[in-house]
Simulated scan of single mutants.
Amino acid sequence: MTIKERYDGCLDYWRSQMPSPTTELHYDNPFQLLMAVMLSAQCTDKRINQISPALFEAFPTPQVMAQSSVEEIFPYIKSVSYPNSKAQHLYDMACMLVDKFHGQVPATMQELTQLPGVGRKTANVMLGTVFNQPAIPVDTHVFRVSNRIGLATGKTPLEVETGLKKHLSPADQIKAHHWILLHGRYVCKASKPDCLNCGVSRFCKTFNQKK
């Protein structure tokens, strides 16, 4: 099987199942999504969606959050992973948005990754989901599934991101991120991949090696 056949098969299947995929995080504006994505690191989207309404209500804008404190932010996020460091990152991020970006979430990789707590993956989520730019965020699901299926192999998220970009059109990149992520979350799980009920198993390098 060629790499093109593998991509065409996977993308055709995922597109038929979910024509317009998007994040499972709840948000109404770029600032809310930025907070949610920062909090979602090593934490489930379900948990973030449970705590985010109160957080968003208490801190509706970067200006409000920047005028608060880490101690005020902490109670709203204490049930997520690493709440102390994330509370600090949220506060510092809001301060930089106000001081450097006029209270607006920036729309470039260079500017986004200047924000405290924002790495390449988070920046790519913002670029693709909010600003409709070609972007492939590589989280643990995308990293694992891309390597398993054989869409892109690599030892680092950047290597996998680079490999995926070689074979995905700009229009498909953020969609493919969501498709691969959701496939990893619900089907191709880390410890027990559900290969028997996988719609793309015939295109999967690992599955076919086991035969």
Rank of each mutant, 00 (worst) to 15 (best):
T2I: 06
R6M: 08
L11A: 02
L11W: 09
Y13S: 00
W14C: 07
W14V: 05
R15I: 10
P21Y: 07
F31K: 06
L34V: 09
V37H: 06
T44G: 00
D45I: 00
I48E: 08
I51W: 09
E57T: 08
P60K: 09
T61E: 08
V64A: 10
M65G: 04
M65H: 02
Q67P: 06
E72R: 14
I73Y: 07
S79T: 13
V80N: 08
P83E: 07
P83C: 02
A87W: 03
D92I: 01
V98H: 08
D99L: 05
K100G: 04
K100M: 07
F101E: 04
H102R: 12
V105C: 08
P106L: 00
P106A: 05
A107T: 14
A107H: 11
Q114F: 06
L115F: 02
L115I: 00
L115C: 04
L115K: 02
K121T: 00
M126V: 04
L127R: 08
G128I: 12
V130Q: 09
F131N: 14
N132H: 12
Q133W: 01
P134S: 03
A135Y: 02
P137C: 03
H141P: 10
R144I: 12
G150E: 10
L151N: 05
L151K: 02
A152E: 13
T153G: 15
G154D: 11
K155Y: 03
L158G: 10
L158F: 07
E161K: 11
T162H: 08
L164P: 02
L164E: 10
K165G: 13
K166N: 11
K166S: 13
S169H: 00
S169P: 07
P170E: 02
A176S: 13
A176W: 13
H177P: 09
H177K: 10
I180V: 15
L182V: 07
L182R: 09
H183Y: 10
H183E: 05
R185T: 05
Y186R: 06
D194M: 14
L196D: 11
N197S: 14
G199V: 12
V200R: 09
C204R: 03
F207D: 01
K210D: 15
